[in-house]
């Protein structure tokens, strides 16, 4: 260990940051999702025409059937669900989308929207683990102004205290 401390003094560091911007294609189903979210405050998933499994987030391929899903296969999902897992993130890390440190602590959960057959992750507005329990009912909290961006329009899910 002391050898390491000696080495630390012998080396100097050069820090270098590079920007590498990407333009991701999100696909037609995601576009429809955001259009419906922005215009009608709707949350949509996609249903496989073959096995009828409802996927959230919506995507173009049902992996179990190897069958394509299109915007015709999109179904509305209620903004409510059930908490399946939760945690509170309590450490600093660089957010690749901003280049800065993401503010912490923040609540982060796994839940299943009613009617969906897959689970999904998002923020929850609770940072006290004692106030969260698997099986609680949660619902999406929408922003006043909807712009077609997931975390701006649905900043978090809240634990429905009235139903728990």
């Amino acid at each position: 260990m002391s050898k390491n401390r000696k080495l630390k003094k012998d080396f100097f560091e050069i820090k270098w940051k590079t920007d590498l911007p990407y333009r991701y294609s999100i696909g037609k189903l995601a576009v429809k999702f955001f259009e419906e979210l922005k215009a009608n405050k709707k949350i949509m998933g996609s249903k496989c025409p073959k096995c009828e499994k409802v996927h959230f987030p919506p995507r173009a391929v049902c992996a179990d059937c190897m069958v394509e899903m299109t915007i015709e296969d999109m179904v509305e999902l209620p903004p409510k669900g059930t908490l399946e897992g939760f945690t509170v993130i309590n450490y600093p890390f660089t957010d690749p989308s901003t280049g800065g440190i993401r503010p912490f602590p923040y609540g982060y959960a796994l839940f299943k929207l009613d009617g969906a057959d897959t689970y999904t992750m998002h923020f929850v507005n609770e940072t006290d683990v004692n106030k969260m329990k698997i099986g609680q009912r949660v619902e999406a909290v929408f922003n006043e102004e909807l712009i077609g961006d997931l975390t701006a329009d649905i900043p978090y899910f809240r634990i429905i205290k009235e139903e728990n």
């Binding site: 991701y24 999100i26 987030p57 999904t120 992750m121």
Partner: peptide
Amino acid sequence: ITAFDPVWERPSLAGALGPLALMAGM
């Protein structure tokens, strides 16, 4: 974090420890 979907997963994801924490809790 960049291993995950930029639209659906990255905004809330906290590296590998986020999902691992969820798994441990469940």
